[in-house]
Amino acid sequence: MIRLQEDLADELTATGAHGVIIDITAVEIVDSFIGRMLSTIGSISRLFDAETVIVGMRPAVAITLTELGLSLRGVRTALNAEKGLQILNGKSRPDG
């Protein structure tokens, strides 16, 4: 997770990207650490003026995060990568 943060920060500086999509389809189990890390990645990306969208979260993962009281503030979520891209391209609804 720490490596991911460093790699991501390096990549964002190198490419000047404006959006980050994190696909967690394959993540079946989460804990509070992972939940917090996702928020941290969102905050780091925002420092580089990039918006983070987490896509493909499983229902069980969502229930766990809710029970842990984490709502991933500062990070946007989408059902799948396609919808995530739509959000980053500004095609989604203006609110939220």
Binding site: V55, M57, P59, A62, T66, R76, T77, K83
Partner: peptide, 10 residues
């Protein structure tokens, strides 16, 4: 809680 979980899914 239900609404929060649905939001996490996007």
């Amino acid at each position: 809680k239900t609404v929060a979980a649905a939001r996490l899914l996007g």
